[in-house]
Design a protein around this nucleic acid. Structure first.
Lengths: 123, 123
DNA sequence: TATAGTAGGTACCTAGAGGAAAGTAATGGC
DNA sequence: GCCATTACTTTCCTCTAGGTACCTACTATA
C-alpha cells in the first residue's frame, strides 16, 4: 500500500496513476462526482446502484486522503455529509473524456474476443 | 468475467474500458509494447522486472483475446514468439500520454496524504 | 554428459478486495 | 413507544489476482 521506494515495475510511469485513480469503484465514484457535482452519501449509493455502503465508505476515505474528493460534514439532526470532487480531481476531466471516447471501441474488443474464441474452439 | 448484460454500476460509461485496459499488469505490458515496439517474451519479462512468467502469459493471452496485442509464433529450433501492440492497442497512445502527463500531479497526492494523516494523528 | 535458454504449463497457497447482513447514535414524526 | 432516516461500522465470508516453485520439450554449446 505505502510504496516508499518506487518498485521496479514502475519503470512504467503511468502505473502509479492507475493505482490511484482506476479501480473497480474509484472510477465510478470519481466519474459520478465529476459529472453530477456535489452529492450526499445516499445519493452516490443510489447512482452507483451495486456498491455496498462499506465499500463506498472505504473508497471515499481513500479518495479524500488522496486529495481527489472533498468531504463536508454537517452536524445536523440526521447527519448530513456532502462529497464533491476537488480541484485536483477535476483535473482528471479530460482523461475521463478521452476514456469515454475510446469506449466507442468496445465493439471491436467484443468482436476480437468472439474471433479468438471461435478460432480456439474449432481447432 | 463475460458480462453479457451491462451491469448497473456501468451507468458509468468508462468502467468497462478500465476493466479491459487498466489493471496491475495489463497497463505496464501495453505501455511497454506501445513505447518500445515488437518484443519477445523474455524481453518483456526483463523490462517489467517484477512480473512472473505465469502472470505474464495470462495477461498476454487476455490482451491477445481482447485484440489489443498481436502474438506471432515462429516454429523455429528454440521457439520464438513475438508480441506487438495491435492497431486497436495503438489507439490507446494518446490516453497513455495524458496519463503520463497527469503523473506530474503525484506530488500533490502525496502531499494530500501527509496532510490527511497528520490531521488524524494529532487529534 | 550436463547445462543453459526459450516459452510457457501446472499445482498449491496467500492476501486483499469486495459482498451480505446486522448494528449504532441521534432525533423527528406518527 | 416505535419506526424511519442518515452515515456509517462491524463481523464474517467468498473469490480471484497474483506469487512460489517446479515441470515440459527441444536443441546448441561446453
Amino acid at each position: 500500500m505505502t510504496r516508499t521506494t518506487p518498485t521496479p515495475e514502475l519503470a512504467c510511469p503511468i502505473a502509479p496513476v492507475v493505482d490511484i485513480v482506476f479501480s473497480r469503484w474509484t472510477t465510478p465514484i470519481l466519474w459520478t462526482l465529476n459529472e453530477f457535482g456535489r452529492m450526499r452519501f445516499v445519493e452516490l449509493e443510489r447512482r452507483i446502484t451495486t456498491i455496498t455502503p462499506k465499500v463506498l465508505t472505504q473508497r471515499l476515505r481513500q479518495l479524500e486522503r488522496d486529495g481527489l474528493v472533498v468531504r463536508t460534514y454537517h452536524a445536523e439532526v440526521p447527519p448530513r455529509v456532502e462529497y464533491e470532487i476537488s480541484e485536483l480531481g477535476r483535473s482528471l476531466g479530460p482523461l475521463f473524456a478521452s476514456l469515454s471516447e475510446w469506449s466507442g471501441n468496445l465493439g471491436k474488443v467484443e468482436a476480437a474476443r468472439e474471433a479468438y474464441d471461435s478460432r480456439c474452439s474449432t481447432r
